[in-house]
Computed example of a mutant assay.
Amino acid sequence: MKSVRNDPCPCGSGKKYQDCCMNSASKQHASMLDDIEQVAAMNPNLSLDELNIVAEHKMQAANNLPVPDFCGLSPTQMANWLYSPFNELEWVTISTPEDLSRSPVMRYLALILDEAMQHGGSFKATTKGNLPTKLVRQASDELPQFAVSRYPTHISINEYCGTNEDKFNALHYSRVLAEIAGIIYRRSGRYHVKKTAQKQYQKQGINAFFIPMLEAATVKYNWGYLDGWEHAMDLRKFWLFMLWRLQSHGSVDQLIEEVATAFPNVLLECSSEEYLSPSQLLGTLIESRFIDRFLQFWGFVTIERKRYVSETHVPRKVDILPVLKQAFQFNIDNQ
């Protein structure tokens, strides 16, 4: 069924079909027909199957051309980052850093595993099903080891320490990821480490779980879980694109603009907020869900607190930390 001119473009850009793929598709189709006619004229003995192969190659070439709105990514590259399974991502190499001691998520996981291994592979949960107070205290004591400690925050709102798991977002996040990743599970009032995970930990240490935890965080975990925003917009599918852009320039405002340009339909999902413009809401969600409670929880970046001068927002920059550079190596040839 063909798209009507004023319908939203089926490519998902958020633009009208006549303003997006209709023109480009028509131009591409006309150009391709000209190319094929030229090939046929120069090679009159080609069969229909051979001409179809030529057309297929032409289409592949078009899909591999860089797109300015994608910051130079081609449609093929973008499609891989948006829709491919975690283990089939291309144009990026994801590696386990040798030293994960400065990563809050991985350090908290190590504390959980150590506590279980000291007690035969499991330990008792609280009556609410949370991690025990002893472990929460140990995790709170780790704060000075993390880069986020350079920005002092009162304990009542600090996500990296707390008196119990309910008030300790980074620790709670880590425990939830460990369950999603299939490393630990709760049964009969106790947290257990799976037998296979115990063997992996004994052989490889905490590094054995970096990739499984990362996959759980980017594919399975609900990024809106810890915030008060009701918007269901799923930023997870853009995570690798956002990471690539932020790693290249470190500017929060530029990242928000690039996401809005590459995926303008996300602004339509942000249009229902009464007090914020769509771009402001998008920026808030990117900062809270992607930067604060993903990148910082993992120890990939630090970001200073929001500041205002004469009621004007001061643009925020992120500091890219070594663990991020060690974990992600991007290979974008058309940059």
Rank of each mutant, 00 (worst) to 15 (best):
T127W: 10
K220E: 11
D35N: 10
L281E: 06
K317F: 07
S24C: 04
V323D: 03
V92F: 06
L51T: 07
L214P: 00
S277H: 08
M42C: 09
F241N: 04
K58Y: 11
K306F: 01
Y221W: 10
F300C: 03
E159H: 09
W239G: 00
Q77K: 06
L89M: 11
S103E: 03
R305M: 10
M78H: 04
P264W: 04
P104G: 04
E165K: 02
S84Q: 14
G224Q: 07
Y191T: 10
D253G: 06
Q138A: 09
V92Y: 01
D34Y: 11
T127N: 13
Q280A: 13
Q138R: 12
A125I: 05
V105P: 00
I320V: 15
T312I: 14
R5I: 10
A232F: 08
T163W: 11
D49K: 14
G14R: 01
P144F: 00
G250D: 02
D292L: 09
Q326G: 08
A61T: 12
I332N: 03
V314R: 09
R190E: 09
S251L: 03
L73S: 01
E269A: 11
A170L: 02
V136H: 01
Q247R: 09
M59D: 13
Q118V: 05
K124Y: 07
D141R: 08
K317S: 13
T196G: 08
A232V: 12
F290T: 02
K2N: 13
Q200N: 12
V92A: 04
P44G: 07
R289K: 09
I286V: 12
P44Q: 08
Q204S: 15
Q118R: 14
E98L: 12
M233D: 07
A41I: 06
D99S: 08
F290L: 07
Q38S: 15
K195T: 15
W239H: 11
P104H: 03
Q329V: 11
L65M: 14
H29Y: 13
K220T: 13
Q296K: 12
P152F: 01
Q77W: 01
G299R: 01
F86H: 06
D319F: 08
N52L: 15
V318G: 00
D166N: 14
K194E: 13
T127F: 10
W298I: 02
S3T: 14
T312R: 15
G72C: 09
M42V: 08
H57P: 00
N207P: 00
N52E: 14
A217N: 02
Q118K: 14
F300I: 05
N334I: 09
Q60D: 15
K15L: 14
K134F: 10
V259P: 03
D35Y: 12
R187Y: 12
H57A: 12
N207F: 01
L33W: 08
T126E: 04
Q60P: 01
E159P: 01
M106Q: 07
I303T: 05
P212F: 05
R187H: 14
A181T: 05
S103Q: 04
W239F: 09
C270T: 02
F123S: 02
N52Y: 11
F70W: 07
